[in-house]
C-alpha cells in the first residue's frame, strides 16, 4: 500500500471507532467484562499480595506496599501516555471523542499519581527514615501530578468547552517531555529511589513469589482503568449531548 492509501485507510479506521454511537455500543459490550475482571483480579491480587506472598527478609511486611505503589506508578505514566496519544489523534484527525477521552481519564491519572506519591511516602518513612526526599524520581512524579492538575484546571477554565479541550490537548503534548525523564530518572541519576527491578528482561531481580502478585495487581489496575475510562468517556459524551440540547433550547 502506498503511503497516501495507508493514511486514508487509517483515517477511515480511526473514524469508524470515533463514531460516538459505535463507541457507546462497544463500551456497553466491554464494560461488564472489564468491571468483573477488575473485581476478580483485585481480590486475587490483594489476597496474593497481602496474605499469600512472603514478607521481605529485610523490609518485613512493609514490602507489601509495593503491590499498590508500583502498579499505580505504572498507571500514572501509562494514562499520561494514553492522553498524549489521544491528544495527538484528536489534533490530527479532529476527533471529538479523543479529546473527551482525555478529559475523562485525567482525574483517574491524577488519582493514580496521588496514590503512588502517598504510598511511596508511607513506604519511605520506615525504609529511608523520611516521608519525602527531593530525589529525581520523586520530584518528577510530583511534576507529573502538577501536570495532571494543570490539565484539569485548563480544560475547565473556558466558557466554551471545546476550546478548553483543544487547549488541554496542546498542554498534554507539551508535557510529554516529562515522561522519559520519569522513566529514566533512576538510571540517569544515582539517587535514593532504587532502580527498576522488574523490567530487566529475562532475569527480573524480583522473586517470582513477589512478582506474581505484583503482576496480578498491575492487571487489576489496568482493568480498573479500562472500566473507568469507558464509564467516564460515556458520561462525558452524554454530558456533551445535554449541553448541545440545552444550547439548542436556549437558542430557540
Amino acid at each position: 500500500m502506498a503511503l497516501p492509501d495507508r493514511m486514508a485507510y487509517l483515517t477511515v479506521a480511526m473514524h469508524r471507532f470515533a463514531n460516538p454511537a459505535r463507541f457507546q455500543r462497544i463500551a456497553t459490550a466491554i464494560l461488564p467484562w472489564s468491571a468483573g475482571l477488575t473485581v476478580l483480579l483485585l481480590a486475587a491480587g490483594l489476597y496474593l499480595g497481602l496474605v499469600a506472598s512472603p514478607a521481605d527478609y529485610q523490609q518485613g511486611d512493609t514490602v507489601r506496599i509495593m503491590y499498590i505503589h508500583v502498579p499505580s506508578a505504572w498507571m500514572a505514566l501509562f494514562i499520561y501516555a494514553n492522553m498524549a496519544l489521544a491528544s495527538a489523534v484528536g489534533f490530527v484527525w479532529r476527533h471529538p471523542l479523543a479529546d473527551l477521552f482525555c478529559r475523562a481519564v485525567a482525574p483517574v491519572g491524577a488519582g493514580f499519581t496521588a496514590v503512588c506519591l502517598i504510598t511511596g511516602s508511607l513506604w519511605g518513612e520506615p525504609m529511608w527514615g523520611t516521608w519525602w526526599v527531593w530525589d529525581a524520581r520523586l520530584t518528577s512524579v510530583l511534576i507529573l501530578f502538577f501536570l495532571y492538575l494543570g490539565y484539569i484546571a485548563l480544560v475547565n477554565a473556558f466558557d466554551d468547552p471545546v476550546r478548553g479541550l483543544k487547549a488541554g490537548a496542546i498542554l498534554v503534548l507539551v508535557g510529554v517531555v516529562n515522561l522519559p525523564i520519569i522513566k529514566f530518572s533512576v538510571d540517569w541519576w544515582n539517587t535514593l529511589h532504587q532502580p527498576a527491578s522488574v523490567s530487566r528482561l529475562g532475569r527480573p531481580a524480583l522473586d517470582p513469589a513477589m512478582l506474581t502478585p505484583l503482576m496480578v495487581m498491575a492487571a487489576a489496575f489496568m482493568a480498573y482503568f479500562v472500566t473507568l475510562a469507558l464509564l467516564r468517556t460515556r458520561a462525558e459524551l452524554l454530558n456533551r449531548r445535554i449541553q448541545v440540547l440545552q444550547m439548542a433550547r436556549g437558542a430557540s
Partner: peptide, 21 residues
C-alpha cells in the same frame, strides 16, 4: 493556551511552573 480563560494569570503559573523545573 490561557488566552480567553477565566483567571488566566493564576492558571498560567499553574501550567508553566512545572515545565520550568
Amino acid at each position: 493556551l490561557t488566552l480567553g480563560a477565566r483567571r488566566g494569570g493564576v492558571l498560567l503559573s499553574l501550567l508553566v511552573l512545572p515545565l520550568f523545573v
